[in-house]
Amino acid sequence: MTRKQKRLSVIVAGLAFLAAATGLTFYALGQKASYFYMPGDLATATVQPGQRIRLGGLVEKGTIVRGQGATVAFSVTDKQKSVKVTYTGILPDLFREEQGVITEGSFGADGIFVADSVLAKHDERYMPKEVADGLKAKGVWQESKSQ
């Protein structure tokens, strides 16, 4: 090979590498990104059982039930619809009734959302952004009522 050919083959190999990486990235985005829903959105969106999503909203008042061991059941609501959620593990410190929460997991066959992670806000002053935006969009929550 001449020097020029060598150089060309290096460039082609580099481009092929980049193309592969790009392809992988977009494949992964399609497969592995989880969408965020509020309970009210689930009526219109089709979410298969087993599909990973994030479900956000407020912890509905009076629905927190502590079951066997560390399993907890509660409902997440956006004041329009509410969804039953079960979670096994330690709830975040700021998990409370009527507070914003994001759960991640998937629906079981029985329509109950099985969460494997529950996020509450990091600080008492703030609500998770997605939840705040969602509630605002539904006109349920106003900035001034955050406390």
Binding site: Q142, E143, S144, K145, Q147
Partner: peptide, 12 residues
């Protein structure tokens, strides 16, 4: 402040 938000909401 939170209080200010409360006032605004109340006034509203």
């Amino acid at each position: 402040s939170e209080e200010a938000k409360k006032f605004t909401a109340f006034a509203a």
